[in-house]
Amino acid sequence: MTTVIWADQEDIPANDRGLAYGDGVFETIRVQANLPTLRQRHVARLLEGAKRLRIPLDSELLQSVIAEAVKHYARPEDWVLKLILTRGSGGRGYRPDATPAPRLIVSAHPMPPMPPSEGVDVCISSHELFVHPRMAGIKSLARLDQVMASQAMPDDCYEALMVNGAGHLLEGTRTNLLIRLGEVWLMPVLSTLAVEGTMQAHVVSVLRSQGEIVLEQDILPAIINQPEFVGLWLMNSVVGIVPVSKVDCLRLPVNARLATIVGQHLFME
């Protein structure tokens, strides 16, 4: 049975496996006008992550907790709902109990500062990202690669873009990416990503519904030097879509094409 922990009312035991081993998954959901955005995509990803880690989680319980959290933390301004699912308590040692008692930890957080609409400066991280195929896509609690890349990021950079051992662009420390090259949109191969972003999935779905071509392929950073390069966008479910105006020392073209196409579809799912 899953125990629900309200972070503003209860403490988390020190022997929780999420704390000891990163044994769990999490979601961060933007709440606008006290409505969770991209709710079903977040629910689906959390349930998929729990399934792959073999942590039992009831779908109805999850939905009811989200509804209760929106009422519990209701406020006039936008805010962020965070859900952390751990396998629960366990003794010293990696091998989990055959019958876990999971914890679902619920907390509310203020919105981070919104990035400027004219674009953000980013850098290419020197910290390579290696994604194990069995962990690809799920938002696990094991985020040390992202922590280290963020720690090394210059203060004047909004985001650090991470590459794999082959030098292919994968994602930012907290964002996914999309590139416009000529008449098509390009994204990294989903099976190579640490996190399959809910916002990225939503944007791609909207683009394809509008007749746009979106391709998955390996992408080298040098793509931004190609004559056909139109633009680079970052995205996550909290800040939405963010155009990139500079990568390291190279200025990029910035336009409103992606925001125009996605338009009012952005937070309506």
Rank of each mutant, 00 (worst) to 15 (best):
T2V: 15
I5C: 03
I5R: 07
I5A: 02
D8P: 04
E10K: 14
D11V: 11
I12M: 00
P13S: 10
A14N: 11
N15V: 08
Y21S: 00
Y21I: 05
G22Q: 02
G24F: 01
V25E: 13
F26S: 06
F26A: 10
F26P: 13
E27L: 01
T28A: 11
I29R: 06
R30M: 08
N34R: 14
N34G: 01
T37P: 06
R39C: 05
Q40H: 15
Q40N: 12
R41P: 02
R41H: 08
V43Q: 11
L46W: 03
L47E: 07
G49S: 10
A50E: 08
R54C: 08
I55Q: 08
D58T: 12
D58Q: 14
D58M: 09
E60W: 04
L61A: 11
L61H: 03
V65R: 03
A67Y: 01
E68S: 09
H72A: 12
R75K: 15
D78R: 05
L81D: 14
L81H: 04
K82W: 06
L85N: 03
R87L: 05
R87K: 06
G93H: 06
G93W: 07
G93M: 10
Y94G: 06
R95Y: 05
D97V: 03
P100E: 09
R103T: 08
L104R: 03
H109T: 08
P110G: 04
P112L: 10
P116K: 01
E118F: 13
G119F: 08
V122L: 04
V122Q: 03
L129N: 07
H132C: 08
G137H: 03
K139T: 02
S140P: 02
A142G: 07
R143W: 12
L144D: 04
V147W: 06
A149I: 09
Q151I: 08
Q151E: 13
Q151S: 12
M153I: 02
D155R: 11
Y158I: 04
E159W: 02
L161I: 13
N164M: 00
N164V: 12
G165R: 09
G165W: 00
G165V: 04
A166L: 12
H168K: 10
L170K: 07
G172C: 01
T173L: 00
R174E: 01
T175F: 13
T175K: 11
T175R: 05
N176I: 02
L181W: 12
E183L: 07
W185N: 09
L186Q: 12
V189I: 14
L190H: 04
S191V: 09
L193P: 14
V195C: 14
E196Q: 11
G197S: 00
Q200W: 02
V206I: 15
L207C: 07
E212D: 07
I213M: 13
D218T: 04
L220S: 12
A222K: 14
N225K: 14
E228C: 02
G231Y: 05
W233A: 05
L234D: 06
M235V: 04
G240C: 03
P243I: 11
P243W: 10
K246I: 05
V247N: 01
L250H: 15
R257D: 08
L258N: 07
I261M: 00
I261R: 01
V262N: 09
L266N: 07
L266C: 09
F267L: 10
